[in-house]
């Protein structure tokens, strides 16, 4: 009992979330509009955590944020924080128990929908920069915003702008390259990158990568791609005789592989939560 076990680890992390930018509240039509919006892309919004941004919100009277939060819940959204809270609203926000995140710094990334082109330019420029590719994607869920407002009566000028901000930092990391056989009992892990193996992977050996796994030789052991959950990761091998293949935690065993591309050049990817195995160059 000399060493007590570590109970947790505190880590910094980026979380993608939906931002609900509030413009006009209270409004009798808020819930209705929100539900409308959610129903346009139910899968995208289902049980999503949202950050309520008050950047463009300046009410004349006191606001009941409790009611706002329960409206959100009713529409199937889960508020997790407020951001860009003006000083005069701080007390009201604090009463809800949700944290008030700073917002001013982020206003730089606020993009009007018509500025879509500039986003693209920005990304392509960044890619051109070379080694360190840093991308900032902004997918706007601006589904028929115009139609919606046009059909509204002139009087109700409440617009709820829902925006999904995906901030992805794609830093290019060179693939891990293994030139000698990976023998039984050995394990090779390519952290944060692709794995390329130029020799065989024996039975009882295990090769893992956060990215794709390429094996230019027989694969007789286990190959796991996207081990941190990247469902776009794939496995390529020149001769499929694997004990197990797995992408983003979804795996199949050799029994099931035997009637697929067994002993052939194969390409394995995840489609609809199922592993799809195809021969390469199979016309």
């Amino acid at each position: 009992m000399s060493v007590s076990e570590v109970c947790f680890q505190l880590k910094g992390s980026n979380i993608t979330s939906i931002v609900l930018e509030l413009k006009n509240y209270p409004s009798s039509d808020f819930l209705n509009q929100l539900q409308n919006k959610v129903s346009q892309a139910p899968q995208l919004f289902a049980d999503s955590a949202v950050v309520i941004s008050l950047e463009k919100f300046s009410p004349d009277s006191a606001v009941d944020f409790h009611a706002l939060i329960s409206d959100c819940f009713e529409a199937g959204l889960h508020p997790m924080a407020f951001r860009a809270v003006a000083d005069e609203l701080l007390d009201a926000v604090k009463q809800t128990g949700l944290p008030a995140l700073p917002g001013a710094a982020r206003s730089a990334s606020v993009q009007a929908p018509e500025e879509d082109n500039s986003v693209q330019d920005q990304t392509s420029a960044a890619v051109g920069d070379g080694e360190q590719v840093e991308m900032s994607l902004e997918a706007t869920a601006e589904v028929s915003e115009q139609d919606l407002t046009a059909s509204e009566p002139e009087a109700v000028k409440t617009i709820i702008e829902t925006r999904v901000e995906i901030q992805e930092k794609l830093v290019h990391r060179p693939a891990k390259i293994i030139e000698r056989p990976v023998r039984g009992g050995q394990q090779i892990y390519a952290e944060g990158c692709d794995l390329i193996v130029l020799a065989q992977v024996s039975e009882g050996a295990e090769v893992l990568a956060d990215g794709n796994v390429h094996i230019y030789a027989p694969l007789r052991g286990r190959a796991l791609a996207g081990v941190k959950g990247d469902s776009n990761a794939r496995i390529f091998c020149q001769q499929l005789e694997a004990e197990l293949v797995s992408i983003a935690g979804i795996f199949i065993l050799s029994d099931e592989l035997k009637d697929k591309a067994w002993k052939q050049t194969a390409h394995i990817q995840l489609k609809d939560e199922r592993l799809e195995i195809a021969k390469i160059n199979d016309k």
Binding site: V182, R183, G184, G185, G204
Partner: peptide
């Protein structure tokens, strides 16, 4: 054969 494969792994590591 399986054991030989294993020992080859130890040899090269």
């Amino acid at each position: 054969v399986r054991d030989s494969d294993r020992i080859l792994g130890i040899l090269q590591s």
